[in-house]
């Protein structure tokens, strides 16, 4: 009975703990996995956005990770504890009134999505008072969103 108890504890408690590790996810377009926690060290491998890396050690701005057959260090600059999300935009929803927002979130004390800021009317008033300039902000956003990805790629790699 005692043997059964200990083997049960060992298999259910000890083994999972021993192998438990935390996953982190690459957020940047790609992430270098270095052989040591330094950008100067050898590149052990690369991972791309969304890849899950298993953390085995942490320290000084770096995570020691395992990724497939690769073991090495990834800088915290490139990763996060949750999988990457798609782009979030609120431009299209900017005209929504505060009342509508309030109704829509009737159950939503729990949802930060409801924090929409001022209504369009309030924004216009504030803009006219010179306290804020929402129109210029929106124009700026619209202009910058229209930069095509190819242009960024070309800019980033001018030699190509």
């Amino acid at each position: 009975m005692k043997r059964l108890f200990f083997s049960l504890v060992f298999s259910v408690v000890i083994i999972p703990i021993a192998f438990a590790s935390q996953n982190i996810y690459v957020q940047s377009k790609s992430a270098k996995i270095m052989s040591d926690p330094s950008f100067k060290s050898e590149i052990a491998g690369k991972a791309k956005r969304g890849d899950a890396l298993s953390v085995t050690e942490t320290g000084k701005g770096w995570y020691k990770v395992e990724f497939g057959s690769i073991t090495g260090w990834v800088n915290k600059l490139n990763v996060s504890k949750t999988p990457p999300m798609n782009k979030v935009s609120v431009i299209d929803k900017a005209g929504e009134s505060i009342e509508l927002k309030a109704r829509r979130r009737s159950s939503a004390v729990t949802s930060a999505a409801a924090a929409r800021g001022l209504s369009e009317k309030d924004r216009e008033r504030k803009s006219s008072e010179g306290d804020a300039d929402f129109n210029s902000l929106r124009k700026l956003e619209n202009m910058t969103r229209q930069i095509p990805e190819e242009d960024v790629e070309k800019f980033n790699n001018p030699e190509k």
Binding site: M85, V88, A112, A113, A114, G117, D131, A132, L137
Partner: peptide
């Protein structure tokens, strides 16, 4: 939470509009 991020963006845009103002 996507809503948290939307809230963050809304909040930031209010501040941004003031800076432009």
């Amino acid at each position: 939470d996507r809503g948290d991020i939307e809230a963050e963006i809304h909040f930031g845009s209010e501040v941004a509009a003031r800076i432009i103002g």
